[in-house]
Design a protein around this nucleic acid. Structure first.
Lengths: 250, 250
DNA sequence: CGTATCGTTGAAGTTAGTCAATTCGAGTGG
DNA sequence: CCACTCGAATTGACTAACTTCAACGATACG
């Protein structure tokens, strides 16, 4: 691993934080265009800002509990949140990772259907659900944006489902890497073949419906085949085209 | 199989059709409370009715094609629609089955992310997407209802995903049976231990991420264990409690 | 009655899971 | 600076679950 790779990963991680730091108002927020607040005019943004509160979550801190009343909804500012279902036997299926710009609570339901906790230290704008609902009732264009986001999440979940139903381990892992690359590039506004992976191997396994052994073995094999390079807290996609073809091929 | 089982399956299949038959207006529609039109007042329903058109689909008829422009959105009246992703190698992952009262096109996106076709003969209210979008823009409470439906679908997709990620074949099949029972009972307004399965074994396999062999073997084993009884076009759940416990147990 | 389609079943093969040992790396303290 | 510790990741040997392939059976339909 070269120093440039470290820098590139580091830039990914800190950029969204820097974008917000020291600016209590929403106006300078670099995430606005990619987040649902992007639907609001500046005067509406003020309204929303006064009912928002920034919160920090340290790594492993719980955000919502499966089945519990969810009094807040969140706009993720930095870090990574994992959304998962806990089975009675203690196993865990991660349904999604929330990155900066993502919204937690899209369904606006009283009870949260999943657990959520922080993978690494994270920050979020948080809103009382009932206040946000009230605001939403007064701003149909925000509701449209929220609905668009929910529809997008629904499609993502369905594509994830296709992956779990049909793809072998290697394709699952490659799809995950390509997906994370795409998502980070939207957030950062630029593409890189170095993909930050803030989550553990166990997290990746629980997301892909595999075991930690299989994820580890698969990554090792991909590295031996010179498709990827494993770097601290991430991977570098060496043969991007070959990888994307493999993913597209099912 | 006794005559009473035939009748019970038949009632399931025809009830929603009868509810609509011979009533071109929406007012008498028994599906209204379970469908998104339920959000509308009677005078609004008239507005919607004039822009709607009833369409019939015969078994196997295509409704939408993956990646193609979707000019219409649909409210299913009767029959069953399967929503699926077609992989480049010809394999198929069914993402969901749409039953009477379900809405096809929740995301209101220009391009449909999945294929949809009729499992058996089906009828639907259909609306030009742009007209419906326009109507939606004028009726925020309908948008709220649509969003609620989309949020529900998102959660369903995520729970399906958990199933594909974590459950073994037997649990997948049992979950599917319990889910279908619950959905039919909402539509019919009453519960029955006889669950209609209008789709083929191959469809069930493609929905559950299994092969037709595994589905068939699993059903046979469940019948041998006296948990279920296989009847034409459906199954009867003999040990409902045991089945629900198994499903809940992961 | 022949054919086609769907479903069932058996035997062999693959993939990923399980269990356990080992290695790696960050953090801590001598 | 080095040894120690702890958790995470890797790796190997073995096993279980599901798939594949192929044959067979049932049912519907002309």
């Amino acid at each position: 691993m070269t120093p440039s790779e470290v820098l590139s990963l580091d830039a990914f991680r800190t950029a969204p934080v820097e974008a917000y730091a020291g600016r209590p108002e929403c106006f300078g927020c670099e995430l606005r265009p990619v987040s649902i607040c992007g639907a609001l005019a500046e005067h509406e943004l003020v309204e929303l800002a006064v009912m928002s509160e920034r919160r920090s979550f340290s790594a492993r801190e719980v955000v919502t509990i499966q089945g519990d009343r969810s009094d807040f909804v969140f706009n993720i500012l930095s870090g990574t949140i994992r959304l998962y279902s806990l089975l009675p036997d203690g196993r865990r299926q991660i349904v999604g990772f929330l990155l900066p710009g993502d919204f937690l609570g899209l369904s606006m339901q009283e009870d949260s259907p999943f657990c959520a906790d922080a993978v690494v230290d994270a920050r979020a704008c948080c809103f009382r659900r009932v206040c946000f609902q009230d605001f939403l009732d007064r701003k149909p264009h925000l509701l449209r944006r929220l609905h668009r986001a929910a529809a997008h999440e629904m499609t993502m979940a369905q594509q994830h489902l296709v992956l779990l139903g049909k793809a072998r381990a290697e394709i699952r892992v490659l799809s995950f890497l390509v997906q994370m690359r795409r998502r980070w590039s939207v957030i950062c506004g630029r593409s890189s073949v170095t993909v930050p992976l803030p989550m553990s191997r166990q997290d990746i396994a629980d997301y892909l419906g595999l075991t930690i052994s299989t994820v580890s073995r698969t990554l090792t094999r991909l590295e031996r085949d010179r498709l990827i390079l494993i770097v601290p807290d991430g991977v570098r996609l060496l043969e991007l085209q070959a990888i994307e073809e493999a993913v597209a091929g099912g």
